[in-house]
């Protein structure tokens, strides 16, 4: 049986007339900027703390980054691999990564560079199958983000709320939505079952996660932006460039 597409041998890139290149370009620019900023912020080892606020990059479980000054490397390295691993293996991120950075494909119905392709069958992309393990770790790390957001209410002069508190609250809210709308979590919570009627509780949970999961991409971007903004805001406060706004 011949499966050879006769018109598949032509040299057309695409006949799409819309701005198909815009989305992968924007994704590549934003993600590259975020990665460069994160590397810079992690290597700084300073200005990650102001008053009750701590940058999410330096949210270390069971201790604080200040107590780890003696480490020969930035204490942020102790935790930063967890969100990096979780995001890098995320099903939504993979779609964007393959489109923007590997052009596999750059956009739908657009020709891609002719080279060997093994998808996610071989190293390194087969490691994406470890996503659920990063999900477990991300939930663990999230609790410490929530703890840091709670601490942001307790100023030197007592209980209060500032713009930094609000930003940190938004950060943990969007991080929670992102983590708990995860495809792997959806599967583990109930998607792996074939007979929902015998597991009513897990079926209800699966339905709720499925609703959240429909906006998984939105939660990905919002949580990325709020992490970014939170670190920038705390860094600017710490450097004395900005003054925190206190609501009460």
């Amino acid at each position: 049986m011949s499966t050879k597409p006769v018109i598949g041998t032509d040299k057309r890139l695409t006949e799409r007339q819309d701005l198909w290149w815009l989305e992968p370009l924007l994704v590549a620019v934003v993600l590259t900027s975020f990665v460069i900023y994160t590397i810079w912020a992690v290597l700084q080892r300073s200005d990650f703390h102001f008053g009750p606020y701590t940058s999410p990059f330096y949210s270390i479980p069971f201790t604080s980054a200040e107590k780890l000054e003696w480490l020969p490397f930035s204490p942020a390295f102790l935790v930063i691999w967890i969100p990096i691993g979780f995001r890098a293996t995320c099903y939504y991120f993979r779609r964007n990564m393959y489109r923007a950075f590997f052009w596999d494909p750059p956009a739908c119905w657009v020709a891609e560079p002719k080279r060997s392709y093994s998808g996610e069958r071989k190293f390194p992309f087969v490691l994406n199958n470890l996503h659920r393990y990063f999900w477990y770790l991300a939930v663990f790390a999230l609790f410490f983000h929530i703890y840091e957001a709670g601490k942001a209410f307790f100023f030197e002069d007592g209980f209060g709320m500032g713009l930094g508190t609000l930003i940190m609250l938004l950060d943990v809210t969007f991080l929670s939505l992102y983590i708990f709308s995860c495809h792997s979590w959806r599967h583990l919570a109930g998607g792996c079952l074939n007979c929902f009627s015998k597991h009513k509780g897990r079926y209800t949970l699966w339905q709720r996660i499925s609703q959240l999961n429909e906006q998984h991409g939105l939660w990905f971007w919002l949580s990325l932006m709020t992490v970014w903004v939170t670190d920038i805001y705390i860094r600017l406060l710490s450097k004395g460039i900005l003054t925190d706004v206190r609501f009460f």
Partner: peptide
């Protein structure tokens, strides 16, 4: 060969019946 699929979701975009091919079938 499910490992060949790298979840770029073009199949979902093109489905005339609006089946959530990637999210509801392939990823599970």
């Amino acid at each position: 060969g499910i490992g060949y699929c790298n979840i770029t979701k073009c199949c979902t975009e093109v489905c005339p019946e609006h089946i959530h091919i990637t999210d509801n079938a392939i990823i599970p």
